[in-house]
Amino acid sequence: MTTQAKVTRDFRYDVTLGRTNLSGIGFRNPVDLALGKNGNIYVINRANEAQPFGTRISWLDINQDFHGEFGQRGNEDGQFIWPLSIAVAPDDRVFVADEWLSRIVIFSQEGQPQGTWGTKGSSDGELDGPSGLVFDSKGNLLVSDGNNHRIQRFTPEGVLISGFGTFGAGEGQLNQPWGITVDVHGAIFVADWRNDRIQKFTPEGQFLLQIGTSGSGEGQLNRPTGVAVDRDGDIYVTDWLNDRVQVFDAQGNFVTTWTGDANLSKWAELQLAGSPDVVEQRDTVPDMLEMEKRFREPIAVEVDEENRIMIVDCRRDRIQVYKKVS
């Protein structure tokens, strides 16, 4: 492992999922993942404009069984232009935030289009660049409304329930928020992206705590994108432009940093098995395996019920999985 824990925790690197691919088995510029029932994992592939067929949702599981892909680039039903966040509803439907069209696109568990909602704007209930999604314990959808610098709560049908946050750098204020999550008590955690901090709010949106300042030192953040909280209250943050993940305890104290421990995924091994020239080239690079471990712009994080921490390693087209053993 390349990590040092300061507070007593036992984390282990577990496995890497994914590989580079524009379609089928593999990812291309993955930006978020969501965990569904029965071990389903949904991954957004942002891809790029010149390769629009790469923009899609991959559906797999922790064993790297590939179940398919759905969604495509466009502005029709079941389509998106700039998908950025994904969440699974209690009824198993899959919700995707499209930050360009400023709308939410809904799919069935198997990827059938189920409609869209959302209107671009800054009035209550409108969206501008939605960048984070999470369902609360009541089954309502919290949306990180990036360019409006606020959080809004909707019913799954898109009816506004409440909202909080204004633009700024003070306590409770936000500057282009991105990732969002809730803990087991319903507290809301927001990656306050351009303020280089994580903020914790009550379920009603009252400020509770902020974690991190700008920088690259221990406990500092450089444009944090994703946040997840495990059942013990430990907080995981993708420290995007520092190319690392940082872990904090429930009070916001620094616990540890991960810079990446990836090895070859099952899918990667399959890919290399058909590419002996690449295998040969890898052998010529002295520190290949060490370089290959590292995160490059980790962008989103989720924790599953087995305390596996899944980190979307965006620029390496993979997911690195750690496990909290104790």
Partner: peptide
């Protein structure tokens, strides 16, 4: 310095 110049499996270095 030697570097990995293949986009598989995890993009170039």
């Amino acid at each position: 310095a030697p570097a990995m110049n293949s986009f598989i499996p995890y993009q170039r270095h």
